[in-house]
């Protein structure tokens, strides 16, 4: 559950443009420790870009992103160091094709000297067990199904023991019957008190798991609030419009 006394992520007047195309126009929000925030909205609304600004996979054009009170948009910040604490899960899994599953999990902790090789391996195995894939340690990514790949991707991010997890449409590239297994893992993670920001089209999941739902359109946050407020009783015209189309 969200701990409202600790602000984990603070976004101030965030702007992002590609050339003359303004994707994020003016975004401000705060995300608390342990909060699960689902970001919804039509495609092209800037939700993925917003998420990618939170770990500076996209360099911001204006405004600030503060993680634990550190402005990560500042050039003085060692962004690699910041990212060690922010796990990210991608739509297309992006497992390292050249490494087997266990090596996918241990690469970053070992390279970044977070722990010894042995520790990394034992933690990696534990994480695989957690996502129900202990028997796949020696497999290669190409041998797994989409749902399995995404669960490995979550386990890989968790191996760095982050305290924030970002999910960029984690179930959009999956066959329908595999969506459930990935959402289940995410639900467990939310239950453990992880701070999570999830860009998703899974309204059911958002309703059930999110502490807060953010609806974005045209580079702005149009509406935000509890799932009940935003999904059940939307106030804004555009939110109502969008929900009518997807529900």
């Amino acid at each position: 559950m969200a701990d409202k006394s600790v602000i984990k992520i603070k976004v101030e007047n965030l702007k992002k443009s590609y050339g003359s195309l303004e994707v994020l126009k003016d975004i401000s929000t705060e995300i608390y420790k342990g909060e699960v925030v689902c970001v919804i909205g039509p495609s092209g609304s800037g939700k993925s870009t917003f998420l990618r600004c939170l770990n500076r996979l996209e360099n911001v054009t204006g405004g600030k992103v503060l993680i634990d009170d550190t402005d990560i948009t500042s050039k003085q910040v060692n962004i690699n160091h910041v990212r060690e604490n922010i796990g990210m899960v991608f739509q297309h899994f992006n497992l390292f094709q050249n490494l087997n599953i266990l090596d996918n999990l241990t690469l970053a902790p070992v390279q970044l000297k977070k722990c010894s090789k042995e520790e990394a391996v034992s933690r990696g195995k534990k994480m695989l067990e957690k996502v129900g894939l202990a028997d796949k340690a020696a497999s290669f990514p190409s041998q797994l199904s989409g749902g399995q790949k995404q669960r490995v991707a979550i386990a890989r991010a968790l191996c760095m023991q982050p305290d924030i997890m970002l999910f960029d449409e984690p179930t959009s590239a999956l066959d329908p019957e595999m969506v459930g297994e990935v959402l289940q893992v995410m639900k467990e993670l939310a239950g453990e008190g992880m701070t999570m920001v999830i860009v998703t089209h899974e309204m059911g999941f958002a309703r059930e798991v999110a502490d807060r739902v953010i609806f974005m359109d045209g580079g702005y946050i149009v509406e935000e609030g509890t799932p009940q407020e935003v999904l059940q009783n939307p106030k804004e015209e555009r939110t109502i419009d969008f929900l009518n189309k997807v529900l």
């Binding site: 996979l57 060690e84 990210m88 991608f90 297309h92 992006n94 497992l95 690469l107 760095m160």
Partner: peptide, 17 residues
């Protein structure tokens, strides 16, 4: 695939690594 580099960077690995 560009996603490979992004995933690696998102874990905190440097560009070189």
């Amino acid at each position: 695939d560009k996603g490979q580099m992004e995933a690696a960077r998102s874990l905190g690995l440097t560009y070189g690594m």
